[in-house]
């Protein structure tokens, strides 16, 4: 086994291990779930706001879905297969928020947005 102890085996073996670990991580976190929150200008959760999801690639931007926030102002998208997207929120009388750019490390990565979409209060 002495012939295995050289810098070529260490380097390419290390790269192979890193790729393996990364793929395990991807498989465990690629359900395509995006969770976030919409709040008003004063910071209160907004129910019934429309959240639009837009895909962004190097060439185009295209709408990929929309959903409504629940009583806690929370929204969820499931099953997306994007890695670069924008989120926008709006509600009649409460204003507009976004677009918020979200970049992911792989397609369909689960993400919890730590920054809420804050409606600007314009009508």
């Amino acid at each position: 086994m002495g012939w295995l102890k050289n810098r070529f085996v260490y380097t390419f073996g290390g790269i192979a291990l890193a790729i393996l670990a990364w793929n395990v991580w991807v498989v465990l976190n690629d359900d395509g779930i995006i969770r976030g929150e919409v709040v008003s200008a004063s910071g209160a959760p907004v129910e019934g706001a429309t959240v639009k999801l837009t895909e962004r690639t190097l060439l185009v931007a295209r709408p990929r879905g929309e959903t409504l926030t629940d009583a806690d102002g929370r929204f969820t998208f499931t099953g997306h297969d994007l890695h670069h997207l924008f989120l926008e929120a709006s509600k009649e009388g409460a204003g507009h928020a976004g677009p918020l750019e979200v970049r992911l490390y792989f397609k369909g990565e689960n993400v919890n947005l730590h920054t809420p979409l804050r409606l600007d209060g314009t009508t």
């Binding site: 890695h83 992911l104 490390y105 792989f106």
Partner: peptide
Amino acid sequence: PHIFYYVDVWYA
């Protein structure tokens, strides 16, 4: 700095 341009290329 960020590595998202590499992600863009990977999928493009």
